[in-house]
C-alpha cells in the first residue's frame, strides 16, 4: 500500500482575519465638541466654509494619483458624546448636515466619539491599549519590563528618580528627560492615556483620537472581525445618543468609510492633541496580517502607500 497523506485541521487552532473595503482617502470634515455646539450654527458654517476648498483639493490630487482618475474619497464627521453629552441626534444631526450643504459638502459618515472607547460589546480603546509597544530608549535589552508610568506614554525616557532608594545612599542629581529619536535636542512628549476615579476609567481625548484614526484606516480587528462597520439608519434620528449606531452611513452612494490614508481638517487649537495622537500611533503595533492585506490591495491597484502608519495620516490646520 502506498503511504496515505493525512491532513487534519482544527478551526479553533487557526486564525482568520476579515478584510475591509477601502477608499483612497478618508477626509474628516470636522469634530464637534460641546463648546462648538454652544457657539451656535455660525461656528459650524464657518468650519465648513474653511474645509470646502481643501476637500476639493484632496479630490483632485487623488484623481491625478489614481490610474483612471477613479479616486474613492469618503467624508466623515465626529461628534463628541464621550466627554460631555449635549443636545440629541434628532436635534443636532440635521443642523450639521444643513450647515455642510450650504457649502456643497456632503457628509458620508457620522460617528460618535464614545464608540472609540466602547461600543456594541467591543472595547476598541482596550484593544488599542493592548497593542501599544513602547518605543525603547537605547540600552533597552529586554532584561527588565519597560519603564511605565501607569496610564502614560512618552516618546523617550523620563527624568530618572533623584531620591535614593537606600538608607544612607547617595541622591542623584536631576537629569532631563530625553526623546529617543531626537535630532540634537529633545522634544519630549508624555501623553496621558487615561485616568481612573474609582472603578471608572476615562480615556483621554488624544487616545480616543488615535483609536479614531486607526478605525478610519481600517486597521483594527476584534476576534478577527471588522469592528463597528457603518450602518445605514432606518427611520428618523433617535432622541438619545446611545440609540445611534457607532458609525452611521448617511450617503448610500458613499465610497467605503475606511481608507488607505486619512486627512483631517482642523482648527490649529488641536495641534497639541494631534502631536499626542502621533506619539501614540507611532507606538501602536498593528496586526501583521491586517497590514499585509492593506499592502497587497493597494499594490494591486497601483497605489504606493507610505510604509509607516503615521505617514498615512495628514492634516490641514486652518
Amino acid at each position: 500500500m502506498t503511504p496515505v497523506h493525512a491532513t487534519f485541521g482544527e478551526v479553533a487552532a487557526e486564525r482568520r482575519i476579515a478584510s475591509v473595503p477601502l477608499s483612497h482617502v478618508s477626509v474628516e470634515l470636522g469634530h464637534l465638541y460641546m463648546e462648538d455646539f454652544e457657539a451656535g450654527p455660525d461656528r459650524l458654517r464657518e468650519q465648513f466654509r474653511r474645509v470646502a476648498p481643501w476637500l476639493a483639493t484632496v479630490r483632485s490630487l487623488w484623481r491625478e494619483r489614481v490610474p483612471g482618475g477613479r479616486a474613492r474619497v469618503s467624508t466623515c464627521f465626529l461628534v463628541d458624546d464621550y466627554f460631555s453629552r449635549f443636545s440629541t441626534p434628532a436635534e443636532l444631526v440635521p443642523m450639521v448636515l444643513e450647515a455642510a450643504a450650504e457649502h456643497d459638502l456632503s457628509i458620508d459618515y457620522l460617528a460618535r466619539e464614545s464608540a472609540c472607547a466602547q461600543s456594541g460589546g467591543v472595547e476598541l480603546a482596550r484593544l488599542v491599549e493592548d497593542r501599544l509597544v513602547d518605543d525603547p530608549p537605547p540600552e533597552t535589552d529586554g532584561s527588565r519590563p519597560p519603564v511605565k508610568e501607569t496610564g502614560w506614554l512618552c516618546n523617550g525616557s523620563r527624568s530618572p528618580r533623584t531620591a535614593p532608594l537606600q538608607a544612607m545612599g547617595k541622591a542623584r542629581p536631576w537629569e532631563p528627560p530625553a526623546q529617543n529619536a531626537k535630532r540634537g535636542h529633545s522634544i519630549f512628549v508624555d501623553v496621558e492615556l487615561w485616568d481612573e476615579k474609582g472603578p471608572r476609567r476615562t480615556w483621554s481625548c488624544p487616545f480616543l483620537a488615535a483609536v479614531w484614526q486607526l478605525l478610519r484606516l481600517g486597521l483594527l480587528r476584534s476576534e478577527g472581525r471588522v469592528p463597528l462597520p457603518p450602518v445605514a439608519l432606518d427611520g428618523g434620528w433617535p432622541r438619545d445618543w446611545d440609540g445611534l449606531p457607532a458609525v452611521v452611513r448617511l450617503n448610500p452612494q458613499a465610497a467605503p468609510f475606511s481608507a488607505y490614508t486619512t486627512l483631517s481638517v482642523l482648527s490649529p487649537r488641536f495641534l497639541p492633541v494631534e502631536l499626542a495622537v502621533r506619539t501614540i500611533l507611532s507606538q501602536v503595533a498593528v496586526d501583521d496580517e491586517v497590514l499585509r492585506q492593506v499592502a497587497t490591495r493597494s499594490e494591486s491597484e497601483g497605489v504606493r502607500l507610505e510604509e509607516e502608519l503615521v505617514d498615512r495620516i495628514s492634516y490641514v490646520f486652518v
Binding site: 487557526e14 484593544l127 497593542r131 509597544v133 525603547p136 533597552t140 529586554g142 480587528r221
Partner: peptide, 30 residues
Amino acid sequence: GLMAGESVRVSRRPIVHALSPERLTGVDCA
C-alpha cells in the same frame, strides 16, 4: 487571553495545546 480582541488558539489533537496571541517588546541594545 493576553490581548483584547485576539483569541487564544487551541488545538485538541493529539493533546490540548493552547497558544496565546503574540505580543511585542521593543529593544535597542547590544
